[in-house]
């Protein structure tokens, strides 16, 4: 569904991504693992059109995304739940959700209201806080808000950048349960995680990104899983000496 081919993204002269190729298949959870600084967030930014790739291509259902503005990419059906959640702190929960459907706000009022109701059924805690400012929510609630807000765009594929970052273990479990449920409803998910243990429990397929390159890909349960987890946490190839 989402095919990333040979993407190179650079900050000035430093290439953060040095030819990354990977694929997220329809209806599946694909997980991108990797240590800090491997380029995971850079890849997400590039796919979402916030950063511009120097070379390579990103295709969503066959349509090229590289070079398109981010608004166009959202319109094509790609939504991103950014790292650190990035909710609008002084805007109410309701308006945060509505902002997620920004692009069809004027044309499809009924549809937006319907989707809003659907998200509130999925996340009852957001309904309790519907008129509160997002900034008053707990970390876990903000993460749910960020997921719900991304779903408001009716994405074909949902990109999630480190949804477990800085959350308590119980909350992390809840977030991963939600991802699993969403996927069961048919949403394609590309999950970026450092928490490899949790991620591999729900992923169908995974990639390992190290120093701007994909160094491993496979399915959970494969032989090298322990080494992959080790490298995802610690970075480098120090684990290969085991």
């Amino acid at each position: 569904m989402l095919v990333i081919e040979n993407i190179v993204t650079a900050y000035g002269k430093i290439e953060a991504l040095r030819g990354v190729s990977m694929e997220a298949q329809e209806g599946r959870i694909t997980c991108l693992l990797g240590p800090n600084g491997a380029g995971k967030t850079t890849l997400m930014y590039t796919v979402a059109g916030i950063l511009h790739a120097r070379r390579g291509s990103v295709r969503l259902q066959g349509q090229e995304l590289v070079g398109k503005p981010s608004s166009e990419i959202v319109r094509r059906g790609l939504a991103l739940v950014p790292e650190n959640r990035l909710t609008f702190p002084e805007v109410s929960v309701r308006e945060n959700l509505i902002a997620g459907a920004y692009l069809r706000l004027t044309r499809d009022k009924a549809g937006v209201a319907e989707d809003l109701e659907r998200q509130l059924v999925r996340f009852p805690r957001l309904r309790e806080r519907i008129n509160q400012d997002a900034g008053t929510l707990s970390g876990g609630e903000q993460q749910m808000l960020a997921v719900a807000r991304a779903l408001m765009a009716r994405p074909r594929i949902l990109l999630m950048d480190e949804p477990s970052l800085g959350l308590a273990p119980l909350v992390v479990e809840e977030i991963f349960r939600t991802i699993h449920e969403l996927n069961a409803e048919g949403v394609t998910v590309l999950l970026v995680e450092q928490n490899a243990h949790m991620a591999l429990q729900i992923a169908h397929h995974f990639y390992l990104l190290e120093q701007g390159r994909i160094t491993f890909s496979g399915v959970p349960g494969a032989l090298q899983e322990d080494e992959v987890i080790h490298r995802a946490y610690l970075g480098g190839s120090g684990a290969s000496s085991h």
């Binding site: 916030i50 981010s70 959202v74 319109r75 950014p82 990035l86 002084e90 902002a99 692009l103 807000r149």
Partner: peptide, 10 residues
């Protein structure tokens, strides 16, 4: 409030 997040919304 958050220009980057706003771009994610399109």
């Amino acid at each position: 409030q958050d220009p980057v997040a706003a771009r994610y919304m399109g």
